[in-house]
């Protein structure tokens, strides 16, 4: 049998490094995507969450939010309740999947696969970048699964909406996956993670103005009459509020805040959380 070899001096260091980076980022990204497709449990979660939120909850609550008397509704937003929560369900799917991608960071660490990558010639920042990129792709894909229910939710979506929506969803997924990695870095024992993820995902979701609007038709002072001050404050402090607002603006063209805030917050989250995750990753 012949064994082939390539001598390092045949090419320059930088050309070799470039091939390592391009190939490596692709390999790590592809691995994340493949693993996500093979994790039937995760895939089922991405499928069942929109079903439960849009179909079961949406239909169940419809009689409570539908119009009964012209001029009188509980829900003063120019959309049905289902249309209103639809973009938030997309965000919820992204949120869950991003945190699960972070869980895989823990498993890689504990089961040794991380070492396989750490001893490879991939520069450390690129390892993290590829990992987050893969996780974000999967999360964006899970978010898109919810879009498949847009007909049911009566949200008409144009091709342009989908393209710009995918962009926003990717930014959101990138930021949240980075956040998940930051959290995962702080978790040493595994048993606690389930509690932790529920302590992160659901509070973030429910306080992001996802299931109830901070009525934009009313003034700030009046808002505080409708909802207690502390709740309004919490919702306004939650960065996910603006992320959900951006998605809502994109898909049903309804903004609660200045339309420029949402994408800015998404960008800031993506850059900020990734930078923190990177600093921590290099330190370890």
């Amino acid at each position: 049998m012949s064994v082939s070899t390539v001598e390092d001096q045949d090419e320059s260091e930088s050309a070799a490094l470039l091939r390592v980076i391009v190939g490596g980022v692709y390999a790590i990204w592809l691995r994340e995507v493949k693993r996500a497709l093979r994790d039937r449990g995760q895939l089922f979660g991405g499928f069942s969450r929109p079903i439960l939120w849009v179909i079961i909850m949406g239909v169940g609550l419809n009689p409570y939010f539908r119009g009964e008397v012209y001029g009188e509704v509980r829900f003063v937003v120019p959309y049905t309740y289902l249309q209103f929560i639809f973009p938030a369900v997309i965000a919820l799917n992204i949120l869950y999947t991003s945190v699960q991608a972070a869980v895989s960071v823990i498993w890689d660490r504990e089961f040794g696969f991380l070492r396989e990558v750490l001893v490879s010639p991939m520069p450390r920042p690129m390892i993290l970048f590829a990992k987050v990129l893969g996780g974000a792709t999967v999360a964006m894909f899970h978010g898109s699964m919810a879009i498949l229910l847009s007909y049911f939710a009566d949200v008409p979506i144009s091709t342009g909406d989908i393209l710009s929506g995918l962009g926003l969803m990717f930014l959101m997924a990138f930021g949240l996956t980075s956040l998940g990695v930051i959290i995962a870095n702080r978790i040493r024992s595994f048993e606690g993670f389930g509690v932790f993820s529920n302590a992160v995902i659901l509070p973030l979701y429910f306080t992001s103005s996802s299931v109830f609007p901070l009525d934009p038709a009313l003034t700030a002072a009046q808002t505080r009459v409708v909802y207690p001050d502390w709740l309004v404050r919490v919702v306004e402090l939650n960065p996910l509020t603006y992320a959900v607002d951006a998605l809502r603006g994109n898909f049903i063209h309804f903004y609660q805040f200045d339309p420029r805030i949402g994408p800015l917050v998404l960008l800031a989250m993506a850059v900020g959380f990734f930078t923190i995750a990177l600093i921590e990753f290099r330190r370890n």
């Binding site: 179909i55 229910l149 049911f152």
Partner: peptide
Amino acid sequence: GASMLQPD
């Protein structure tokens, strides 16, 4: 398929 269900 689920999207084709009757919403009301």
